[in-house]
Amino acid sequence: MSLNTESKLEKILKAGHLGVTSECGPPRGSDPEGIKEKGKLIKDYVDAVNVTDNQTAMTRMSSLAACIHLKLMGVEPVLQMVTRDRNRIALQSDILGAASFDINNMLCLSGDHQSFGDCAQGQNVHDLDSMQLVQTVRHMRDEGKFLGGDDIKRPPKMFVGAAANPFADPFEIRVPRLAKKIACGAEFIQTQCIYNLDKFEEWMKRVEERGLHEKTFIMAGMTPMKSVGMAKYMKNRVPGMDVPDAIIDRLAGVPKEKQAQEGIDICVEAIQRLKEVKGVSGFHIMAIEWEEKVPEIVERSGLYPRPEV
């Protein structure tokens, strides 16, 4: 498969390896040490690291700045960009800024509504939606032009991804929605956290029926549960999350001090099962504020060492 960018993630996926990505949330302050520390912990266990963009609408250090810190220490970042906070001028501008540091991957999202965060009274922008942002980056890269039509000197060479939530409603359009994102130019997909494996496999079956797994790389989203409390919170409070009771019961069935380990075990078992599912091209391990556990999950899931490309 020919390569479109210098992205390490693209090279690994196109070489036929299962890709592994993880996620780092930038700090709520200007000290870069935290993000560097997280980067150091997981560097050798993943192919690229997503850097979230003011996730849950809480104001944080910018994703782009945090990506640069990672890039400078030799970690491959995936710049997450939401359409909530910036219009098409700012988005294109930040894409060029990222490309100037040879940040080679981007994930296009709409972003959580601002009412969940610390600026509930703020405006949102949504000049573009997430699919249109995918189109925009691809247009900038492939046509070498701005949305306004002018030529870009040294166009950004981004490997472009989008999110998919197999569990949001209505289920019947979840696959058509993926098809739409692929039609807009999404080259890789990172899914919402998967706990309901049966439902995910049902979604993947429909994806495969339409041959969509051959048009994009689907990376299954995994988040280990730290406790039964977290599992209940995810089930009841996080929009679009599907946590089966069996997960909650299993965590509740072990003593409190062992729940975290149980959560890791559940995650590793899920990865091992999903590795066998046709169309799954890799794993996106989002260990939320628990990055130190990523190496263990990757190793125990048989995904270590990472391939050299």
């Binding site: 359409t83 972003g111 939530n165 949001a168 409603d169 209505p170």
Partner: peptide
């Protein structure tokens, strides 16, 4: 709430 023209977003439940 997000004026999404190609929706729904992942938050639809």
């Amino acid at each position: 709430a997000k004026r999404v023209l190609n929706g729904p977003c992942g938050g639809s439940t």
